[in-house]
Design a protein around this nucleic acid. Structure first.
Lengths: 120, 120
DNA sequence: TCCTTGAATAGACGTTTGTCGAAGCAGGAA
DNA sequence: TTCCTGCTTCGACAAACGTCTATTCAAGGA
């Protein structure tokens, strides 16, 4: 319901870092993903959602895990959403988030030399 | 010679994100690595070094690839060094950098569910 | 010795980011 | 309707970040 944004993440990107030098736009795309993960709170949010039973977690669960205000958690969730790493869906009173594992897998593949060249 | 700093990266960290929730200190450690990679210039530097013949590149090669001043490149290399992703060595007039592939591999493993639990 | 060149450090400056309190919106219950 | 609760948006502010110029250091060559 927060209207899924660009989803830049999906077409990001690139053969492994060590195979050939990234060009500038590839680097910009990739850096958006890394930027989204470059915060301890967001990493924990991601991990909480990913490891939660059923593959999704509601915001209320997430907020309780931190000493931060609601708006701050909401802000971090928005950053993760806009980077394409998670999606949120409202069901009745609560909003549930789940991760996009393919995006994490892509990112993972970029870091190591052995993996998929770039499936599409 | 720029004196290898903490190398925090080596003991960072963690079973895959989706296996169990990261605790706070794990998240802080991991976020340092992601922060180091959360910039297009640093990603390209990393990629240039990793993909360079012989596995190393001298600063002069790197500087030429960007429209940025020497000090700026030097600053980014320092960030990468302090995160443990690369090392620099002076040989005569030039300084050569190489990446630590194990650190990238660790990071990669954290992102996907299937991989090594956490070898130690 | 002095000079030149490659690289790192110091300090300044504008931009981005993380956090908050206050206000707004969406659903459900009375 | 009105009220309450869960979540998001808005606006502000301090801290962190990326870039620059000027300076310093390190190594070699005259």
């Amino acid at each position: 319901m927060p209207k899924q944004l660009p989803l830049v993440a999906m077409d990001a990107c690139c053969s492994p870092l060590a195979r050939e030098p990234l060009n500038e736009s590839q680097a910009v795309e990739l850096s958006k993903l890394f930027k989204a993960m470059a915060d301890p709170v967001r990493l924990r949010l991601l991990s909480l959602i990913a490891s939660h039973a059923g593959g999704e977690a509601c915001v209320c669960d997430l907020t309780d895990a931190f000493d931060l205000t609601g708006p701050t958690i909401s802000h971090h969730l928005k950053v993760l959403r806009e980077s394409g790493l998670i999606t949120g869906e409202r069901r009745g009173t609560w909003v549930y988030y789940r991760v996009h594992p393919e995006v994490l897998a892509r990112l993972s593949a970029v870091l190591v030399p052995g993996d998929t060249p770039v499936p599409a």
